[in-house]
Structure formats: C-alpha cells, structure tokens
Amino acid sequence: MNPPPFEGKRGGRLTTDDYLFIDVNHFKREGLLTDAGWFSWQWVRRGKLVDAINVTVKENGIIIDGQSIYIEWSSCPLGGIRPWFHCSSCNKRCCKLYKANTSFACKTCLNLVFKVWHLRPKKRALRRADKIFRKVSFDFSRKGDKPKWQRWPTFERLEAEGEKALNVISGEEEKLLDKLRKLNPLKQAGRTC
C-alpha cells in the first residue's frame, strides 16, 4: 500500500506518524460508540484539513466508506469494558487502525514502525533517560532521594534504567570524540609539542 502523499520516510520503513489513524479508545471516551447512528471524523494538521470520513455506528462495529470494521468488547479485571478494533486484513484485535489509501489496516499489516526506531542510539537513550527522570520527578538537588509516593523497588529499577541510558549516551559521546581525534591528529600533535 502506498504512503500518503503529504509525508513519508524516504529511506527505511514508514512510521506510524506517516499515516492517519483512528483510535477506538478515543471514540469510546468521546461517547461516539454508544448509540447507533453516525458521526463525522476529521484530521487537521497545522490548521489545515487533511482528510475527513463519515462513520456509521452499528451494534457490533462501524462502517467507514463501505469498509466494515468489527468492534469486540472485553471485560477489564477491575470492572468495566474495553473496545477493540478487528483488523480487516489479519483479523487481529488492535486499538488503532491506520488509513492506507481508502481502507484501514493495523500497524503489522502495513509493515509500520514507531518513529523512535529511526533514531540513533544516543537519541534513543536521551529520550529514555528524559522519560525516566520525568517519571521519577528526579530533582538533582536531592540526589538519591526518592519521591514521597514511590516505592523503593520502583525507584531503584528506574534509577538503574536511567544509569544504563546515561552509560549509552556517554559511550556514544566517546565514539564521537574518537572520530574527531582520528580526523584531526596533526593539530593534537602540534599542541603537545
């Protein structure tokens, strides 16, 4: 299936950000799946309308432009029910379906990856470390002190993951410094003499 004309990855696999998608949990939160009827859905990027669809709600699914998408409801362990789309291509259940030309399919069927897969190891490690430090509410003035609400095993696990990410970052920086040293050996030799 062809990527949408407005974006796309030129080298490597396409990402989920390159496609428009529908999310069954968002539809449920908005209350769009409760009563039989129809609604219209629009995608807007940078203030411009990219695409719009009309969705007809049936008792066991939805219909978008003639394509029928089955919705399965499963019970949650602590009560309540959760909706799932069934991909028309592979019949697996998923939360998001991506628009490919005129039909909708899951991430696996379209052979998509997440945007983070295209990042270099250093950028991935920085992203991971930032996410961990935000989760821990890490305050550098209170080193080694965990947040009041967090359990010790969780804090220690997150601290170890953060250290691992920082080790990857410093390793990548060392590789970069080695490359710079190899490119410029004469200037370094001139400084030492």
Score class of each variant (00 low, 15 high):
37 G>V: 02
186 L>F: 13
52 A>E: 06
184 N>G: 10
108 T>L: 13
116 V>D: 07
158 L>G: 14
161 E>I: 03
135 K>I: 04
144 G>K: 06
74 S>L: 05
157 R>T: 15
74 S>N: 12
23 D>E: 06
123 K>S: 10
55 V>C: 05
96 K>M: 00
38 W>V: 00
149 W>H: 13
172 E>N: 08
117 W>L: 00
189 A>I: 07
78 L>C: 13
141 S>N: 12
193 C>A: 14
22 I>C: 02
102 T>H: 11
140 F>S: 10
65 D>W: 08
112 L>K: 02
59 E>D: 15
149 W>S: 11
131 K>G: 12
9 K>F: 14
39 F>W: 11
127 R>I: 05
155 F>Y: 14
166 L>T: 06
82 R>V: 09
85 F>E: 02
34 T>K: 15
186 L>E: 07
152 W>E: 13
50 V>F: 02
95 C>P: 02
19 Y>G: 00
189 A>S: 10
67 Q>N: 06
62 I>D: 00
183 L>A: 12
1 M>V: 05
156 E>W: 11
174 E>D: 09
16 T>L: 01
85 F>N: 00
97 L>H: 06
94 C>Q: 05
162 G>Q: 01
30 E>M: 10
123 K>F: 09
4 P>R: 13
82 R>A: 07
160 A>S: 07
111 N>T: 07
122 K>A: 11
172 E>S: 09
185 P>C: 05
64 I>W: 06
17 D>L: 06
114 F>T: 08
96 K>G: 03
73 W>G: 02
114 F>G: 11
25 N>W: 13
104 F>Q: 01
66 G>P: 00
76 C>Q: 13
18 D>V: 02
11 G>H: 15
108 T>F: 12
181 R>K: 15
104 F>M: 04
106 C>M: 03
14 L>F: 15
78 L>E: 13
85 F>W: 11
188 Q>F: 14
42 Q>N: 14
3 P>S: 14
180 L>E: 11
16 T>E: 08
193 C>M: 09
24 V>H: 07
54 N>C: 07
101 N>Y: 03
60 N>R: 12
26 H>W: 10
193 C>Q: 14
34 T>L: 11
70 Y>M: 09
91 N>V: 04
138 F>P: 01
190 G>V: 09
27 F>I: 00
98 Y>F: 15
43 W>C: 00
137 S>N: 15
140 F>W: 14
133 F>S: 05
132 I>S: 06
129 A>L: 07
154 T>V: 12
114 F>Q: 07
63 I>L: 07
169 I>D: 06
107 K>Y: 08
101 N>R: 02
169 I>M: 09
19 Y>S: 00
63 I>E: 09
25 N>I: 07
188 Q>G: 08
105 A>G: 03
